[in-house]
Simulated scan of single mutants.
Amino acid sequence: MRPVPAIVVMGVAGCGKSAVGEALAVRLDAVFIEGDRLHPPENVARMARGEPLTDALRQEWLDAIGQRIAASVASGQGVVAACSALKRRYRERLRGFHKDIVFLYLEIDPATAKRRVASRQGHFMPASLVDSQFATLEAPAADERALTLDATRPIADSVASAINLLSKSL
């Protein structure tokens, strides 16, 4: 498989972005960026209170992820980032830092996402915000450089499918 310079694993809370992204980065010998760790403290506090983020509140966060992606690519390293990237304009903002990002959309149903988020320990995102994520979600369109995976499958299956799809599409 040819090296992929930048992949963003995207989707709503509970779809498995972090788990799939980290495992994919290991398989690709790429840097892993955990987008949740780059949220400004104010955003984390807001979400912990059950308040969804606005587009304006997401800008600094998206820029931090985009800057990390660009820095990794500039240093010659492949990179996999976990970032919800729920709207097309968010994905376009990230592409402003590196135009060749491939988005890997982990598609999941609301009930499964809520169940997963409710079972997480020590995470700032409450299950009460899952509905707002689905309300915000704009699944990647056919003209975007994006691949879709079933997020209800085991992590190892998702990673294997991602590698297979990436090898065919790039």
Rank of each mutant, 00 (worst) to 15 (best):
N164P: 00
T148V: 14
V73Q: 07
R115C: 03
L165R: 03
S18W: 11
D150V: 03
S167E: 15
M47R: 09
S167W: 05
S84C: 14
V73Y: 04
A30N: 02
R68L: 06
G21R: 00
C83D: 09
G50N: 12
V9I: 12
V12T: 12
R115M: 07
H98T: 10
I69Y: 05
G14A: 03
D29E: 13
M1H: 11
L170Y: 05
V73W: 03
E144R: 06
A111V: 15
L38M: 11
I155E: 02
G122M: 04
G50L: 11
H123N: 01
R116P: 09
R153P: 02
D150A: 10
P5M: 02
A85D: 08
H123Y: 01
M47F: 09
K168Q: 15
M1P: 12
M10K: 02
F134A: 11
D55S: 06
L104E: 13
L137C: 02
P126S: 13
E42C: 00
P5Y: 00
R88H: 13
C83G: 08
V9M: 05
A64L: 10
L104C: 13
I65N: 07
D29I: 00
G122S: 14
L28S: 03
A19E: 14
E51Y: 04
G16N: 09
K17C: 04
R49F: 01
G122A: 14
R145A: 12
I101P: 10
K87G: 10
Q77M: 01
R58I: 07
A142R: 11
V4L: 13
D109Y: 03
R2H: 10
A74H: 08
A160F: 01
P40C: 03
C15A: 14
Q77K: 02
S161Y: 01
D150F: 04
V73F: 05
L165V: 02
V8G: 09
D157K: 12
